[in-house]
Design a protein around this nucleic acid. Sequence first.
DNA 1: CTGAAAGCGCTTACAG
DNA 2: CTGAAAGCGCTTACAG
Lengths: 339, 339
Amino acid sequence: MAITIKDVAKQAEVSPATVSRVIADNPRISAKTKQKVRETMKSLGYYPNFQARNLVAQKTRTIGIIMANSTTLAFQNPFFPEVLRGISVSAHNSQYGLYLSTGATEEEIFEEVVAMDQGKRVDGIILLYSRVGDRIMDYLFQSGLPFSVVGRPHTNADAISYVDNDNIGIAKQVMAHLFGLGHQRIAFIAGGKDFVVTLDRLKGFEEALAEHAIPHQAEYVVNQEGMQQDGKGAIRQLFELPEPPTAIVTHDDLVAYEVIGYLEDLQINVPEDVSIIGFNNHALSKHLKPPLSSVDICIYELGVEAANLLLEKINDEKAVPRQITVSSRLIERGSCQGR
Amino acid sequence: MAITIKDVAKQAEVSPATVSRVIADNPRISAKTKQKVRETMKSLGYYPNFQARNLVAQKTRTIGIIMANSTTLAFQNPFFPEVLRGISVSAHNSQYGLYLSTGATEEEIFEEVVAMDQGKRVDGIILLYSRVGDRIMDYLFQSGLPFSVVGRPHTNADAISYVDNDNIGIAKQVMAHLFGLGHQRIAFIAGGKDFVVTLDRLKGFEEALAEHAIPHQAEYVVNQEGMQQDGKGAIRQLFELPEPPTAIVTHDDLVAYEVIGYLEDLQINVPEDVSIIGFNNHALSKHLKPPLSSVDICIYELGVEAANLLLEKINDEKAVPRQITVSSRLIERGSCQGR
DNA sequence: CTGAAAGCGCTTACAG
DNA sequence: CTGAAAGCGCTTACAG
């Protein structure tokens, strides 16, 4: 059996209450007593039991992290580890621990969220994604449990603390860059279509076209399902169009390189024949050939700020929901060319 | 205030003890009572409080995950998310949750491990790496807390449950493949030098050379520190040797592509001038040019088995330590050529 | 088959 | 400045 507060109390010849107060560094305890109790704790190797402490304190100093369905490609790209790194740093600074969802299906994850909330397993939750009509977000919204989101919520956004990039704006900037190089026929390889980030970037894409009076052709948009089922075929189709694109924007660098691979098979060269821009600025993108122009969305900062927003709500019951826009910028490399 | 067991008891007109037994599905409770209590739980929206339950049960149904220093490049490559996915699946199947270390330095992580153990915050720990002379491993070994390791422990390996690839063997296989293609001067870009996985692969590398009576040249081994400080310089140096290598083995695919980038800058072509093989079989490696020959180490399985080993120890106090070797195999693509 | 009581290891008003 | 007591929300021998 582990050392308890009673063992320390007995050994130090004080009451358990006093030991507890020494742990909490209560100012009403004399320096002498504190000293004595602390020595005893040390000599006995005492460590407070978290379960007991949490039970009476009615809090856990733990943050729940909800990630999207782990069977998706979410795990392939570096978004998850990088955002987690940001969250870790912020949580660690405030002495919070991290509890991870493990479910593989949306149903399982939903159950976990309910259990985390109702079972008082965490003090708050960070939702690592935002999708349209998400049960989990709806549940959190009505639960009263503090939470924050990485990504703009599709509904009730004003009433929710979240971090996001200016996805519409950055998509327009990417388009402006391509327009500036003389491109008019631009394809867009989009992420999962129920993710708000996808909708926003697509909106920026379309707005940019509209502002330049370029008609929006649906064939130029390839959705994630199309890429996953038959990426090669999807790209081939794109270039069998009567007017094939001269530039491609993809929602992720890894996808960009996958596309570049298919293009090489089709004898289409990047950037000579077609320009390409990715998102997420993968560590590899500056080393590979061609070096990829990519949008750095500052994933680490997204994580840090999401954790900060959550901690703000945890620490202050009536903190007003805040929204943080993390900067993003296009990093130009060698994958685009004027025409 | 949340609904407690007492509320349910009152409403269902039974004792709290009975409600507790219904939750545990105790066979001594009549079907009728169970039915009644369950209905009441549902109608009140009752959820058991984990803290309370854990406190009395003296266990947490939570697994602690210790990852290496998050400031390292560990986060760049897909090992971490993939091994975590394996652990998640196994943990979820057994209804265990995951608690993550957040520390940025070894000291911080050590403190967390102690807190997880002494504070009874987790039922066991999975250590995601194995390095020489690791305080954390030593602590766990003497603590009595169940734990398992991804990677062979450097000391006391027989007394510890761990999963690993046959790193010596697979390194030798990689070498045999290159020998078979006629390569004799082979460079090795190694991982962190205090990781056991690095030592094992290096051992396989050296044994293979010895078996082929090829002298081992220290200049052909580039360690991680060298790559991180000045990767480009390190590769240039390699090819300024009087007898430059004709093949390169790297500890990770991403590093392989980084190297390939430097080689292109040096006007050295892969695979015509130099062959290259990576480890970890990154999702991208089949799409990129050149498609990279790579060792698939089955990261997901490593995670699954590490979790299984831990659960085995958690569920059976006196379970004997077991070691699991997860298969690994070289996947040949276009990055090697005979000479 | 069910209940009353004790207890898991803490914290925190309430007294003094 | 310190202690005795009650209580956080459960579980589990012990009775009956």
